[in-house]
Design a protein around this nucleic acid. Structure first.
Lengths: 354, 354
DNA sequence: ACAGGCTTGGTAATCGATTTCCACATGGTG
DNA sequence: CACCATGTGGAAATCGATTACCAAGCCTGT
C-alpha cells in the first residue's frame, strides 16, 4: 500500500523484534525451541508487519517445496477433473499442496509441464500420461528426478509407480452382469471403446475381447461424449435394432445413451448400455447408468500415502513392488459393479452364481 | 542415476565449458550476447550434463516466477474445469504457465491457496471466489500483493479486476426468446437457480426478476445436477403439468431435463428448459440444450492480456476502468443465445422484433 | 567448586540462479 | 597517436530463507 513499502522479509521481522533472523526462523517454524518471551515478540512483530514467509527462498534452501504436481491430459474430461478434485482433497490434510497442470492433450505441452514442475522442485509428481508411447520421454524424465506416480494410464517402459483400476476385472464384472440375462447367441454385444493409445483404453479393449471373444464387434474412437454420439449413430444407421452396448467410459456411454433415446429406441428394452468409471459428472446421468465404478477415493489416498512414504527416502522405493523392472510398480484396485437403469436388473435367482 | 550424482548446477556446466557461471547464464538465457564459440561450448556442456535450470533459484533472484495461479472453487463443476482448460490453453502461447489449485469449496482452503501462490511468487492470480462475502479476505489479500483478476464471480468490496459475462443481458436474451412464444398469462415461468451466495447466482436471479417480474416463482439451490434433479422433482410433485423452466446453469438444466423426461413428460411439449453457460461437458446434453452461451474464449484471452499488460507495471492498472473504487474494474462480455431442442424454435415471422 | 551436558541465541555459510560492476580488448575517429 | 565507445568475460553481490557451527549460560552430580 505505502509507496516505498516492499514486501517484508524475515530480516524486517528480526529487526522489529530485536532478535536475529535465525531466531525468527526458528520461532515461526518451530524447528527448535526458543524462549517463549522471544517467540512472542517475534510472533507479534510478524503479525504487525503482515509478514508471510517467502516459499521460494525456503524451497531454494531446503531443496524441496512442499508441493506435489499433477499433470492431466485435459480438464474437460470429467473423469480427469474428478480425479484432480479427489487428489486435491486428499492432499489438504497434508502440509503440501497439489498444483494441477493441463497438458491440453499435447505431448509437447505435457513435457513442458514436467520441466516446469521439476524446475520448481516439486516433491513428487502425479501424471496421467497423454499417450501410451508418446509420453514415455516425459514420464521417464520425471521419474528420474522425483518420485513419480502414474495414474489411470501408464507408459509401459518406465519404473515409475502406477495406480489404476484393474481394467480386466472391470470387464469381467461386465461379463458376469451381462451373463445373467443375455443369451449371446441371440443378442449381439458390442464395445464402443477408445483407440488403444492409452493403457486404459488398451486394457479395456483387451479385457472386453477376453471376456466376450475376439470376434465380438468393437468401435474405437476417443474418450468423449461426441464419440459416443457418433458411434451410436453409426450403429443405428447400420440397422441395429437391439444390442448390449459396452462402453469404455461413462462419457462415451452418455453420448451413446442420448443418441439412442433421441432416435426413439428404448433403454433397456432394445438397447442396454453399460458405462465405465462411475465417477465425475457423467456418473449423474439420467436414466442412471449401469457402470463399473473405480474406487477413486482409495486410489487417491493410496497415491498420497505412496508419496508421503516415498518422499522421505529419495524416491527409490520402500513400497512393495510387483516387479522391479519393466512396467514399473503397479498398484491395482478392484472396481465395483453399479447397477443402473440402462440394463436389466440382475436375476436374483439361482443360475450361474459361481 | 549414478550413485553420487546430484542434479547438475550452473556451476557444473561452467566448469565443464571452462567459463564462468555468468557466461553460462548469459549464454543460456541470451540476456546478453556472448562469443558464439563460447556459447556453443556452453550449450554442448549443458546438453551433455542434462542440465536444466532451477526455476526456484531464478525466481528468488528475479522476484518473479513466470507463473500464474488459478484458484477455482472446485473442479467437479464442468463449467469451472472448462474455464480452467481454456485459461490454460490461453497461457500456453505465453512463456508463463498456469497452475490450478482447487479450493474444495472451502473458504479456509481457498485462503490457503492464496497464501501458497503468493508465497511462491506467482506473477498474477486468477480467482473464481468461493463465496460472495466470505472470500473477501482471500481476494483482498491477493490483490494487495499481485495483479489479481476475478473470474465469473466477484466479491463486491475489492479493487481487483473482474471478468465475467453480462448476466443481466443473458436473462434479457432469455426473455426475448421466451417472449416469442409464451403467452405468460397462460404458461407459467419458473427459475431454478442457485442461492445468491455467489455474484453470478445473485445477478442471474436479479436479472430474471427484472425480466420476468418480482413475483415469478423461483427455486434456489446450488450449481449442481443433483439440485436440478431435486428441484424438478419438487415441481412435478407439486402437480405442475407444463412450464417454461429457466435455469441458472447448464449443470442444473441437465438435471432438470433428465428428471422431467424420466417422469414421462415431453420436452419441449409440456416443459421447456433453458440453460445458462453453454460451455463444458454439460453443453453436450442430448436433447441439445437451449442455452445462453458465455464467450469463454474471449474472456480467457482478455484475462491473459490483462495480466500480460498489468504484470509489467506493478499491478496498479493500465486498463481502462469503469470505476476506480468500490467493486473494482469490471469487464463484461455479452452472452449469445444458442437455440436447442429443449424449447420451441423461434418464430421467424414478424412479431416483436424490436 | 568444577566438569560435562543441555538449552538457546547469534554469526555466517548455503541453496542456485541473475545481475551489477569492473577490467580488458578492440575498433573507429579526431 | 590519443581517446572514447562498444563488446565481452569474470568476480562478487544479491534474492530470502534455513541451518551448521559456535559460544554463552545454566543446571546437575560428585
Amino acid at each position: 500500500m505505502q509507496p516505498g513499502s516492499r514486501r517484508p522479509r524475515m530480516a524486517d521481522v528480526a529487526e522489529r523484534a530485536n532478535v536475529s533472523v535465525a531466531t525468527v526462523s526458528r520461532a515461526l517454524s518451530g524447528s527448535r525451541s526458543v524462549d517463549p518471551q522471544l517467540a512472542d515478540r517475534v510472533a507479534r512483530a510478524a503479525e504487525e508487519l503482515g509478514y508471510r514467509v517467502n516459499l521460494v527462498g525456503r524451497a531454494l534452501r531446503q531443496t524441496r517445496s512442499s508441493t506435489v504436481g499433477l499433470i492431466v491430459p485435459d480438464l474437460d474430461n470429467p473423469f480427469f477433473s474428478a480425479l484432480a478434485q479427489h487428489l486435491a482433497r486428499a492432499f489438504t490434510e497434508t502440509d503440501s499442496d497439489l498444483l494441477v497442470y493441463s497438458a491440453d492433450s499435447s505431448l509437447a505441452t505435457e513435457l513442458r509441464g514436467v520441466h516446469s514442475f521439476l524446475g520448481r522442485q516439486v516433491d513428487a509428481l502425479v501424471m496421467i500420461p497423454v499417450h501410451e508411447q508418446g509420453s514415455a520421454a516425459a514420464v521417464d524424465l520425471a521419474a528420474a528426478v522425483v518420485p513419480t506416480v502414474q495414474l489411470d494410464r501408464c507408459v509401459p517402459s518406465t519404473h515409475a509407480h502406477f495406480v489404476a483400476v484393474n481394467n480386466h476385472r472391470g470387464m469381467e464384472l461386465v461379463g458376469e452382469h451381462v451373463g445373467t440375462w443375455v443369451d449371446r447367441e441371440q443378442q449381439p454385444v458390442v464395445l464402443i471403446g477408445a483407440e488403444p493409445s492409452s493403457s486404459s483404453a488398451h486394457e479395456r479393449l483387451d479385457g472386453f475381447r477376453r471376456v466376450f471373444g475376439e470376434d465380438t464387434p468393437v468401435l474405437l474412437g476417443s474418450f468423449s461424449t461426441e464419440w459416443g454420439h457418433t458411434a451410436a449413430q453409426r450403429l443405428l444407421d447400420e440397422g441395429w435394432k437391439q444390442a448390449t452396448i459396452v462402453t469404455a467410459a461413462d462419457v462415451i456411454a452418455v453420448g451413446v445413451l442420448a443418441q439412442i433415446l433421441h432416435r426413439g429406441h428404448s433403454v433397456p428394452g432394445d438397447f442396454r448400455v453399460i458405462g465405465f468409471d462411475g465417477v465425475g459428472a457423467a456418473a449423474l446421468a439420467q436414466p442412471t447408468l449401469t457402470t463399473i465404478r473405480q474406487p477413486v477415493e482409495a486410489m487417491t489416498l493410496a497415491i498420497r500415502d505412496l508419496i508421503e512414504a516415498g518422499a522421505s527416502e529419495g524416491h527409490a522405493g520402500g513400497v512393495t513392488s510387483d516387479h522391479d523392472d519393466g512396467p514399473g510398480v503397479a498398484h491395482r484396485f478392484d472396481p465395483m459393479f453399479v447397477p443402473g437403469e440402462t440394463s436389466p436388473a440382475e436375476h436374483l435367482g439361482s443360475p450361474t452364481r459361481a
